[in-house]
Amino acid sequence: MSNVQKRPNGSWRARYRDADGRDHARHFPRKIDAQRWLDEVTASIVTGRYVDPSKARTTLEEFYDDWSQRQLWATGTHVAMRRALTSCTFSDRPLASLRRSHVEAWVKSMVQAGLAPSTIRTRVMNVRAMLRAAVRDRALAEDPAEGVPLPRLRRREHAMTIPAPETVWRVVDGAPEWFRLYVALCAFAGLRVGETSGVQLGDVDFLRRQLHVQRQIQRDETGAVQATPPKHGSERTVSLPDELVEMIAWHVEHVGVRGSEQWLFMAKTGEPPLQDAVGNRWRRLLDELALERFRLHDLRHFYASGLIAAGCDVVTVQRALGHAKASTTLNTYSHLWPSAEDKTRAAAAGMMRESRGLPADRTAESG
Rank of each mutant, 00 (worst) to 15 (best):
E142P: 00
A19C: 09
V41Q: 02
G270M: 07
K231R: 09
V51D: 07
L115Q: 06
P117F: 01
A25Q: 11
V255E: 00
F63G: 05
R219W: 06
R180H: 08
D203S: 10
D137H: 12
E157H: 11
R99A: 13
V245C: 11
S101K: 07
A309H: 09
S109V: 05
L358N: 04
W263F: 08
E142H: 11
I308P: 03
Q200L: 12
R293G: 05
A116H: 13
A96L: 12
T237P: 01
H158L: 10
G256N: 14
D205Q: 13
H158I: 02
S234F: 01
R49Q: 12
M130D: 09
M160L: 11
R57S: 07
G147Y: 02
R152K: 14
R99L: 14
L191W: 10
D23P: 03
R356M: 11
Q5M: 04
F265A: 01
W169A: 05
S109N: 06
N9D: 15
V107P: 03
Q216F: 08
R30F: 05
G279C: 11
H232R: 13
L289R: 14
S97M: 07
H27C: 11
F179I: 10
E195P: 00
F90S: 02
E61C: 03
R152D: 04
L60C: 04
V111A: 05
R219K: 12
H297Y: 15
V46K: 00
G233V: 00
E195Y: 05
L299N: 04
W282D: 06
I45C: 00
R192P: 08
F28C: 09
W178E: 01
W106C: 05
V278F: 00
T89C: 11
N126R: 15
A249T: 05
R155V: 03
A116R: 12
A326V: 13
Q262R: 15
R57Q: 12
T122M: 10
R345T: 14
R36S: 11
L207F: 10
V148Y: 03
A139Y: 02
R236Q: 00
G202A: 12
E261K: 13
T59E: 03
F188L: 15
G21F: 05
A364R: 13
